[in-house]
Amino acid sequence: MDEQIRELVADVLDLDEDKVTAALSPDDTEYWDSMNHLRLVTALEEEFDIKLTMDEVQSIENVGDIYAVVKRHKGEQ
């Protein structure tokens, strides 16, 4: 699943996949702005058929947080 998320993040932020690490955060790339943060959320919700809560959306600070939140929704630890 991490791989699927990495591909998606790379698409939305238009990055090479190898640049997408768990530590990647908005500070590291110019395209991860507040609008693309929302687009990232929409794309994740579409891709994995989940609905993030408002708190979750606001608490995502890096790609690692995305892995965690998607897994929580899909019931995987």
Binding site: L8, D11, V12, L13, D14, N36, R39, T42, A43, E46
Partner: peptide
């Protein structure tokens, strides 16, 4: 054209 593609196409 899904949400994940829009930024890529736009750029």
């Amino acid at each position: 054209f899904t949400s994940r593609d829009i930024e890529l196409i736009f750029r």
